[in-house]
């Protein structure tokens, strides 16, 4: 079981790595948004650091929204999705592998770039761990939930806008709890409540999303 999961992750990462230009897109996106903010709004330290949690999280959310559309697209066009359904393994497991690969491509670079973003936006050093943890827990939720929208719209062609409409309401709680955790940490308040909510969201998404995704794909194939 674990072997086939790793096989799917490995294949998707290999395919992504062969298209290196696309691989850089999310990182580039984070870097551009965060460097433009101080230039466009105001370089004032206290103002920026107040804005920062929201900026970091809105960036993460948009990056996920843009990239998640492609998660099943290629597989759908080249017929690999059908082959997944003919395998003796549960489709939700194989699909979960694809989502993990998506997170490794979009979420993990974000974990790396967060300290730099924090510096550019004047987020104090002692808040960085909280920000980092919120990204660590929050971005997998974005990938899992986004993949449901992608699975539902993959058969429609040009489903980009539709994914936004479907998925955005489910992204909002992540945005609220994650950015409020970072804001609270800046004010020196406890953050365990917000992080616990995020963690609960992640567990819920881990359990339910793969099932929802495989059911949605089945509908899209019909």
């Amino acid at each position: 079981m674990l072997n086939v999961l790793l096989t799917v992750i490995h294949r998707d990462l290999l395919v992504a790595f062969r298209r290196r230009a696309e691989l850089m897109n999310p990182v580039l996106f984070y870097a551009i948004v965060v460097t433009l903010f101080p230039l466009g709004v105001s370089p004032d330290v206290s103002f920026l650091s107040k804005l920062a949690p929201g900026v970091v999280w809105v960036t993460a959310l948009l990056a996920a929204l843009i990239s998640v559309e492609r998660i099943f697209k290629q597989d759908f066009e080249d017929g690999s999705i059908e082959q997944l359904f003919l395998s003796p393994y549960p489709v939700s497991l194989l699909i979960f592998g694809k989502v993990v690969a998506h997170w490794i491509i979009t979420g993990v670079p974000m974990l790396g770039i967060v300290p730099i973003m924090a510096m550019l936006l004047h987020i104090p050093g002692q808040v960085l761990p909280v920000l980092w943890i919120s990204v660590l827990i929050g971005t997998p939720i974005l990938s899992l939930v986004g993949a449901i929208g992608a699975a539902l719209t993959v058969g429609l062609g040009g489903g980009g806008m539709l994914i936004g409409l479907l998925v955005l309401p489910l992204y909002i709680p992540v945005l609220i709890f994650a950015s409020s955790a970072v804001s609270a940490a800046m004010d020196g308040q406890a953050v365990s409540g917000q992080l616990a909510m995020l963690g609960a969201g992640l567990i819920l998404a881990l359990i339910l999303a793969p099932l929802a995704i495989s059911a949605s794909l089945k509908v899209s194939m019909d």
Binding site: E77, D78, L86
Partner: peptide, 15 residues
């Protein structure tokens, strides 16, 4: 029990 080879062959071009 099925092996299916369709028009879209399920072959990954990047592999």
């Amino acid at each position: 029990q099925i092996s299916y080879v369709g028009h879209q062959s399920g072959v990954k071009m990047d592999l």
